[in-house]
Design a protein around this nucleic acid. Structure first.
Lengths: 145, 145
DNA sequence: TCTTACATTGTAATTCTTATAAATTATTTT
DNA sequence: AAAATAATTTATAAGAATTACAATGTAAGA
């Protein structure tokens, strides 16, 4: 279950000046339990039942708070809106260029890349982002015939 | 000089149904000569002198055309607008989290990652994207004292 | 309890990007 | 070379995603 990780995230927030609110809890819960990488709007819609009065602004505000604390990552792609992913174990994404499906896969951290970049550019590097693009099995099949 | 590469790009366009226009030439020229990674608006502003009547839509349209032909890449980051980079040799970017500065660095292609992703997910992989984030020398100095 | 600081809500505003239609320019056909 | 066709540009409007703002609400500390 993702519940331990959710708890860790909540604890991480407690140690800052960030207060825990029902809305925040719900957003975090949704993020940690959903295996997908939802957009702000998807989160908003998903929580409409529980919080009929919640504002979209709240979702955006809190996602930013979580991002600043470092427990959530924003994924931006060319088109459409940003997607949000909770930072758990180190993993990367494969994205289908046709349908947009996102699948996780694990790969040992690319520390060498960070080190090289530091040396070559003089930057103080602290993280990186990588995505792999291709066609998912479903879309591959459809274009076959 | 980047002029040979610019010429190659123009030749690449000629082999398609894409027509060469003064605006397109200017946009390409700007992209290939600027060492930065300009936004659509930056390009627009930069060419205002030469083409006082050019529309922002033209810039966007043509960047998309170039993207489709494969001679330009779109870089999307969390905030602000997309940046555009001409596809020359394989390289990656280090981005300053403070000021947004982008610096290129070379790194041998990460083919193993693509291969692994293919095996694990069943996708047909054809490319990847990677960026390294950190603080640039200038910004590092400023926060020191 | 009172005060202060942080959060939420609703809405308006902003920003980036795309769609559309008319006018213009480039290519192809005759 | 002129006419016909196709692609392009322009200007503007529309759209979508995100943020700003002011008012209200809620939690924590003195």
């Amino acid at each position: 279950m993702a519940n331990e990780q959710l708890q860790e995230a909540i604890d991480a927030l407690k140690s800052t000046k960030v207060r825990m609110t029902p809305q925040r809890h719900a957003i975090l819960e949704y993020l940690y339990n959903s295996m997908s990488h939802p957009t702000a709007d998807e989160i908003y819609k998903a929580l409409e039942g529980k919080f009929p009065n919640m504002s979209v602004a709240t979702v955006y505000n809190n996602l930013r708070v979580f991002k600043d604390v470092g427990i959530v990552k924003e994924l931006t792609y060319g088109d459409s809106s940003s997607r949000f992913d909770c930072v758990t174990t180190e993993h990367y994404h494969v994205i289908c260029s046709d349908c947009g499906k996102i699948v996780d896969f694990h790969y040992p951290g690319l520390n060498e890349v960070e080190t090289l970049a530091e040396h070559v550019t003089g930057f103080k590097v602290d993280n990186h982002r990588m995505e792999v693009y291709g066609t998912c099995p479903d879309c591959s099949q459809q274009t076959q015939h």
